[in-house]
Amino acid sequence: MKVQVFAVLKDHFDKEFEVHANISNAQELKNFLIQSRPETKNILNNCRFAVDDEFVEMNFKLKIDDTIAIIPPSSGG
């Protein structure tokens, strides 16, 4: 699956990257990312996850060809 990150998360991850681990839902993806970059735990715990331009719950089932966007709290305006 493909992961896209934004804003402050780009200081810790590539803007877009592939994850090949065995991951079945959004929570597992979050846990995987925290494990690989423990310093992002607080940030990731404040983020929402989105697939196909819609926010998803953490139990959302992920498919291998999904692109998951990780959305930090908004700071527009």
């Binding site: 709290p73 700071s75 527009g76």
Partner: peptide
Amino acid sequence: IKHEVPIWKCEYLADGTKEWGGNC
């Protein structure tokens, strides 16, 4: 728009540092 839409601000400061999401 400020609270819900996925848009992010990065402030570049005169001391050469940057801060994401200032004034959020």
